[in-house]
Simulated scan of single mutants.
Amino acid sequence: MTGQTDQLDLLYSDTEEDLRAAVRALLADRAGHRTVLARIETGSPYVPGLWKSLAGDIGAAGLLVPEEYGGQGASHREAAVVLEELGRAVTPAPYLTSAVVATETLLALAGESDPAAELLGGLAGGGTVAVLAVPLTAAPDTAPDAAPDPGRGTGAVADAVAADVLLVPRADGLHAVPAAEATVVPQTPLDLTRPLARVLAGPGTGSRLAGPDETRAAVRRGLLAGAGLLASEQLGLAAWCLEESVRHTRERHQFNRPVGSFQALKHRMAQLWLDVVGARAAARAAADALAAGAPDTRLTVAVAQAYCAKVAVRAAEECVQLHGGIGMTWEHPAHLALKRAKSDQLALGSAGRHQDVIAGLVGLPAPA
């Protein structure tokens, strides 16, 4: 397992680069931007067969699952690489919600709960998709206490429409509820590539996995890992926006010159490059801290989210603007990146919420 040293390691290993190449090739072949745009038109963004190839054939779904439970026994660093590529392609897939958040939640219970361990085996092979039934906006330091009672209906839960099993926190603990026993009411999301739904799973449905105290700790562990690795998705999205902007401004000519040669645009893209470099450092630090179980993981994750969320939005906005008129059209994928970036800005805690966490951890007054 990588990342198990006292020294922070931000570099990508050969294994991570090989994994990146495999995921990028799969997405280019099966889920390019044109394919995603076409799927959105159908009302169901998930590309048929993609999850089986990504989760099962490549083995990406089991990266965080130890081998004893049927997983790959890798680490958050490898999962971060997968999320980078999913962010670059703005891929509709329940990877963050199932392979990271739900998986980490179950890992916290696997040693004490046989049903949790059995569920992990299904998640690791990609045959089962599990989703934690808390709102997408739930931050690690507030959930599950701030989550509505799922018996009355949750807030907007990401990827609930794709779930086989819903992990539902209740007053008496965490329950695994088969999707067939719950009512999933689709909502209208800003980001059409990450469907949202309200989940209703009344008392008596599903099987109990853990008590209240264990549930609280497990859910917070799941959301902390999700927030830390969401930074890698934001990094991948921002990097694509920068590369696409550079490509377009090289090819687009005005007054017999590439528009990218104009000094004002050079400065904007140079600043964006600096932002992306900083985001890469922050995202990699969060992934490495999660992989190593570092004592300052909460702080590192909060820093990554506070920074990367803003960079992704700025990169997507610049991508739209630097493409001129074509960037404003439905046919160009720039709007996919912008909507995902804006949605991610609120996911798993807003930047302001993470800044408050940073202030509390380092003993500084929070900004007014």
Rank of each mutant, 00 (worst) to 15 (best):
G49Y: 08
P135W: 00
M1W: 10
L274V: 12
R340F: 02
L86F: 00
D141P: 02
M269K: 06
A22N: 15
A218K: 00
G325E: 09
H248S: 09
G352C: 12
K342M: 08
A28F: 07
G226H: 00
L109C: 05
V311Q: 09
E78Y: 08
H76K: 00
G87L: 01
I326P: 00
W273T: 15
G62R: 11
R77F: 03
A264N: 09
A162F: 10
V65C: 06
A130D: 02
A31N: 07
R221I: 00
E214R: 14
L348A: 04
E251R: 14
H253K: 13
A55L: 10
V168A: 05
E233D: 00
A116W: 06
E317T: 09
P94E: 05
V47H: 01
G204Q: 11
G151T: 14
P140C: 09
P148G: 11
V184I: 15
H267I: 08
A108M: 03
V168S: 05
A334H: 11
A315H: 02
L336A: 07
L96Y: 02
L167M: 07
R257C: 10
D172V: 04
G32F: 08
G87H: 01
T297Q: 12
G173Y: 03
L336P: 05
L10W: 14
C319Y: 10
T5N: 10
T15K: 12
P48R: 07
H354S: 08
V131G: 04
D172R: 08
V357Q: 14
V23W: 03
A124W: 07
Q254W: 15
G228D: 05
R252T: 14
A309D: 01
P258W: 12
